[in-house]
């Protein structure tokens, strides 16, 4: 192989990369917070909600979980404007990530809620709590604690999946890599560097989520 690897473009283009990392982190932060919030609401609806709401949420979850993120993104960015809803690329990317993580985290959180011992609900009711109060004060936090590792993995998966938002010209890390390779023709090196950055981000994000988990869920008896 006579190919010479060159990384001297890094000196010139590192601001693009830093900016890309910033956008990627911004997308996953907003996506994770709102997505998990949506997931909690949907999990409540599917596990404990009114009967009429259950099939609607189930349809949403199944539809999102069985279609590619790329198509969801294209549908929101290119399809919705024909209904009169114009979105910027970052808004579209954010909405797509929230909707996507919402559906996945719904199923994960629902598993946590449904593994709550029945006695917990009865105990809440015997303290004269309404079903919603029982959910909020008794059931929710231990449920989240049980499924936090699975939820963290899903957040990391969504972060890695967010690399496709470059396809609607949201200027994330992948967009930066594409930009650099189009300027320098150093495609392999540009993608190699950004792949390694993604790997580091994924490892860091996992650590951060573990720390956040330890912060939200201080040691407590779960049963």
């Amino acid at each position: 192989m006579s190919y010479q690897f060159q990384f001297n473009w890094l000196a010139q283009y590192y601001p693009e990369i830093v900016k890309g990392i910033g956008i990627t982190l911004q997308l996953i932060s907003i996506g994770a917070v709102l997505g998990i919030a949506l997931g909690i609401a949907c999990a409540w609806a599917r596990a404990l909600g009114p009967t009429w709401l259950k099939p609607i949420v189930a349809a949403y979850v199944e539809l999102i979980r069985n279609t590619p993120f790329l198509i969801q993104l294209f549908f929101i960015f290119f399809g919705l404007p024909s209904l009169g809803l114009q979105l910027g690329e970052l808004q579209a990317a954010n909405i797509a990530m929230v909707v996507n993580l919402g559906a996945y985290s719904c199923e994960i959180i629902r598993a946590g809620i449904q593994s709550t011992p029945k006695g917990q609900f009865e105990a809440g009711a015997s303290l004269a709590m309404t079903p919603f109060e029982t959910f909020r004060h008794v059931v929710l936090v231990p449920s989240l604690q049980r499924i936090w590792p699975a939820l963290s993995s899903q957040v990391v998966i969504v972060m890695l999946g967010s690399s496709v938002v470059s396809q609607i010209a949201a200027e994330d890390l992948t967009f930066a890599a594409n930009f650099i390779q189009s300027r320098t023709f150093r495609a392999f090196e540009a993608y190699m560097v950004s792949t390694l950055i993604y790997l580091v981000l994924a490892i860091l994000l996992r650590q951060i989520l573990a720390v956040i988990g330890g912060f939200i869920f201080p040691r407590r008896a779960t049963r």
Binding site: L160, V164, T174, A177, Q181, F188, Y191, L199
Partner: peptide, 23 residues
């Protein structure tokens, strides 16, 4: 760890452009 910790899209790009390096 490498394949689970990096985006599939990047792996596709590297396969697409990386194999080209071998002529």
């Amino acid at each position: 760890e490498l394949f689970q910790g990096t985006p599939l899209l990047m792996q596709l790009f590297i396969a697409f452009f990386g194999l080209g390096l071998f002529g």
